[in-house]
Nucleic acid binder design. Structure first.
Length: 169
RNA sequence: AAGGCAGGCCGUCCUGUCGCGUCCCGCCUGUGCGGGAUGAGGAAAGUCCGGGCAACACAGAGCAGCAUACUUCCUAACGGGAAGCCGGUCCGUAUCACGCGGGCCGAGAGAAAGUGCCACAGAAAACAACCGCCUGACUCCGGCCCUGGCCAGAGAGGUAAGGGUGAAAACGUGAGGUAAGAGCUCACGACUCAUCCGGGCGACCGGGUGAGGGGGCAAACCUUAUGCGUUGAGAGGCCAAAUAAGCCGGGGAUUGAGGGUUGCUCGCCCGAUCCCGGCGGGUAGGCCGUUAGAAAUGGUAUGUGAGUGCCAUUCCAGAUAAAUGACAGGAAGCACGCCACAGGCGUGUUACAGAACCCGGCUUACAGGCCUGCCUUUUCU
RNA sequence: UGUCCUGUGGUGUAAUUGGCAACACGUCUGAUUCUGGAUCAGAAGAGUCCAGGUUCGACCCCUGGCAGGACAA
């Protein structure tokens, strides 16, 4: 489905700290992309507390995404909003392969698209870049996962995130 | 009709396919699904003023500090607005001139309370004698005629009429007056102060009388008058979660450490398992505040106007790293080009800009369009 | 969200209660050298972020903008 709901957005301060501190990053012009995955070969998205999760940190979709446009590069709020909306639109239309990939692995992912160009690009260019970025992220995850499973043999280490959350609840 | 000036208003629309926030209803009750309603602006901006609201003792005194400054009014309040007064400037008209009409601008109180400043130039820049002019009154010396005058000089004075300057030179013009001069006197005119009369709520205007004759700068200090308590929604209140009543050093318990969001002083209040510093540790979620208001729209009355009163109707964004979007097609406006001159075709373009507690203003940005008033030019009647 | 500060040659800084916009580095030209550097001599380069105002006169004072920066949670 081509959706981009509130629960697909990355809003929790805690998760954002985690992503920016421990996530991997790559460049796909005009974006800097940050991602952080749990599942095989990756540390889990464990929530340390014992209390109920805040709604913003609950995964009802395989991924949570945020789009950032620096105010230093675009001074006017209208331009920032425009770019953010275009990126969200592109993500909305092209996320489904990435979602099926994540669901196939039983993983969950945090994503950040940071716009680093000084120019406003047309929608077609942004859509291309978003698709390329998602593919690149997918490649990296699968490579890393393959290495890890080959070396460590943690085949049964499928610790679904759902279980984790259930425990916390 | 065209142009100019001033003021006010609007600021794209429709369809389709995906999609988002909030609220309501229903189902499953899982974080989901379905349906309906609704969803940016005139500036939401800059954060330049003023309030509401909240906390601080339902905030007290003094000093300091800040802001404002013609008058009257509007307003919750304002540094905003309206109507006027005065000054400056421009246009039109009339012209010897005064004037009359209109537009624009004005931080527009006080320089006769005091202090300070006025570069360069110039004699002098604020208690003005450098040059010049004068020698009536005063002193001395000399010459001539001769016993009282004349001439010349020095001292001592008088004098603001004239002097390259300068942004600015000590009321202007004319006459009298004088040794020479001077508002010294007079006439006319301009100005300041006081006072009286008339008009106006008032700023002020018109007129009379008396006095006066030493510039400018307060967006220099300042004086006067008026106003301002401080801090701002991460205000503030509540709930949930977490942890350590941890370790080290210092201070203190009514003779008071420290605190109470105020620059200082005072006053007042709170105040002991307490306070300060360092190390170490935890949380960073939710709800209220928060959108029914100095509200919007329409009508009506009143006022020159800003506005105000009354009546009716309506409920009109509430996000929280932040919703209101993307694509396609069409319409409309505008610009350009061509065909051509009613019009048609093609291309391009549709601004400035995004709510963040809420209002009233100001300022700034803005494609294009509409309306009103005044003035000028041309055509027709 | 609120508060504060700063804008001067290409760069970094001056300008004493308002009175000729100064200095260093850099740039250019010439000399020196076989050439370059260093050195010496000389020159150009701003009208003070923008627009108004006060004043005889404004980098300086006032008002409004623009740009950049800092702070507080």
């Amino acid at each position: 489905m081509y959706t981009y709901k509130k629960s697909e957005r990355l809003g929790s301060v805690r998760l954002k700290k985690l992503l920016f501190a421990k996530g991997e990053h790559l460049f796909v012009y005009p974006f800097k992309v940050l991602f952080f995955v749990d599942g095989p070969g990756y540390p889990g998205l464990s929530w340390p507390g014992k209390r109920p999760l805040p709604p913003a940190a609950v995964f009802s979709y395989p991924a949570k995404c945020l789009v950032a446009v620096p105010g230093r590069l675009f001074k006017k709020a209208v331009e920032r909003n425009r770019i953010r909306r275009l990126v969200k639109e592109a993500y909305r239309k092209n996320k489904s392969p990435f979602y099926t990939f994540l669901q196939g692995r039983g993983s969950h992912c945090l994503l950040a698209f940071i716009y680093v160009s000084k120019k406003t690009l047309p929608y077609s260019a942004i859509e291309e870049a978003v698709t390329a970025a998602l593919k690149e992220v997918q490649n990296r995850i699968s490579n890393r996962g393959a290495e890890h499973s080959g070396a460590g043999g943690q085949g049964s280490g499928d610790q679904p995130y759902e279980n984790d959350t259930q425990n916390h609840k």
